[in-house]
Design a protein around this nucleic acid. Structure first.
Lengths: 268, 268
DNA sequence: GCAAACTATATTGTAAACAATCCTGGGAGG
DNA sequence: CCTCCCAGGATTGTTTACAATATAGTTTGC
């Protein structure tokens, strides 16, 4: 323990929760800084994120959009040059991506984009289904009109992107739609966990997004979800939630088996 | 983009899952390399961990056992001296703990042990219950005798620690028991997510572990769980799983309200 | 006497250099 | 011809120093 001749900390026994953010003697900036971290807002934003988080997001985006394929390796120095930063932050970003399950890292060797085995994908989607169904099961009904409006707005965004074939915008508007939907449940931990698992399978969306049919089906699902929400039909909403999660893993696994043979999907 | 004149990577299209670890051309030594880094002797888990993970673990343990209280701040240099390492690893460990929800970090200010508001605790436990019930719901029955034996062994360990009043061992053996139990479900993602959420509330176990009655109740719960497992009574097991999760948050919230007043628990 | 600004210090963030480790490829020995 | 060993080069891991930023205490102006 080094010197600590000054005060140990403000020590205000406020409610320790979200507001605790302000504890360190929050200036005007404190709140903002840690506040706007939940979203995956825009393609390449620099807004109030820690540099490492921004780098992680950019790499994530590359993986999602297929610009970096599985087994491709990520060199720290390359990333430093690319993002104009130092290795400390790049390193942090890489560990962050390991945590999210998007890349793999072996000490003293390096990091590489991670491919998901069918079995893993199935398992992740099983948990996602459980949690997303839980989320829509606890949404307080009736849902406020403003919330419905917001979902409709996001749905319009998504539809437009689908129509335009703009995959990047499709991806992010779809993300925002689901964030808004599950956000209605009010359980921050649940929302965060759903988000975490969604990140793990970002990479395979590429397969699901491949066909226009899939995109359109997703669009229609969203529309039905909004209807069910407005009508207060919870059972319907749950059914839709389950159905909406089916196509992505199926498309991925099918593509995987066609490419590498069926054997791999059965092991493990 | 620096030079990359050599091979881009082995590129073996094996099953991309867990075995992928070997992809970078893992030699025989690969595993050892990360293993033989004792760094700082940890009480319980000295296993092959990256230094940063070990540091995170130690700090986590301190928090769990109340050796570091909420709002206490963590200075990078102090931790370097304590763990005999450099700031890079300490920094990594701190970010890791932020992710686990045990500490809070504000850029340019520092990190501090995080206190959980009652509302957060409730939310986390709600998700934990959902996932743990899911886990025991998908355990393939009947359970192998060796698995039952292992659980009994861990239960004995736990019981002994409870009897001896050795809180540290109680904590870790309890952890191992639940890892083994939920491990039976076979869904790696589910196991990992359950573990993640358990970490988030490590800190509040201190309250639950305070009374010998609580410890003994947990012990008896474990015993009943093993019985239900052996008898193949899934409904019973689910009921026990739910019941087992109740006391901890209740004890914490009660203690919290007694200390800071009831107002805080209702907001948010 | 109070408030605003200033300085001093503690702490975090960034950068660069150095050391350790691992893959690649060629050559010696069998 | 094959195997083993050894240098060469690339990449990660570690160390150190320095810069930026925030907090605390003090001073100055009113």
């Amino acid at each position: 323990m080094a010197a600590k001749p000054l005060k140990p900390m403000p020590l205000k026994p406020t409610k320790a929760g979200a507001a605790t953010t302000a504890a360190i003697k929050v200036g005007v900036r404190g709140a903002e800084t840690s506040a706007d971290k939940p979203a995956v807002g825009a393609p390449s934003p620099g807004r109030g994120l820690v540099p490492a988080e921004m780098i992680a997001r950019r790499i994530e985006e590359d993986i999602v959009l297929g610009r970096r394929h599985p087994r491709e390796r990520l060199i720290e120095q390359d990333l430093c040059d690319l993002f104009q930063t130092h290795r400390g932050d790049v390193r942090l970003a890489l560990f962050e991506l390991v945590r999210k399950g998007l890349i793999e890292r072996i000490p003293n060797r390096g990091a590489m984009v991670r491919g998901l085995a069918p079995q893993e994908v199935r398992e992740i989607y099983a948990v996602r289904e459980e949690l997303e169904v839980m989320a829509v099961s606890v949404i307080p009904f009736p849902v406020a009109a403003t919330d419905i409006s917001r979902l409709e707005e996001l749905h319009r965004e998504h539809s437009a992107a689908v129509a335009a074939g703009d995959l990047l915008t499709v991806f992010y508007s779809n993300l925002r739609f689901h964030e808004a939907l599950f956000g209605l449940c009010g359980n921050a931990c649940l929302i965060e966990t759903i988000d975490l698992l969604a990140h793990k399978v970002y990479g395979i969306r590429f397969y699901a997004n491949a066909s226009p049919q899939s995109l359109d089906r997703a669009r229609r699902d969203h529309l039905e979800m909004i209807r069910a929400l407005r009508a207060g039909r919870r059972d319907e909403l749950i059914k839709l939630t389950r159905r909406h999660l089916k196509p992505s893993p199926e498309a991925y696994i099918k593509a995987y088996e066609q490419r590498f043979g069926k054997a791999s999907s059965a092991d493990g």
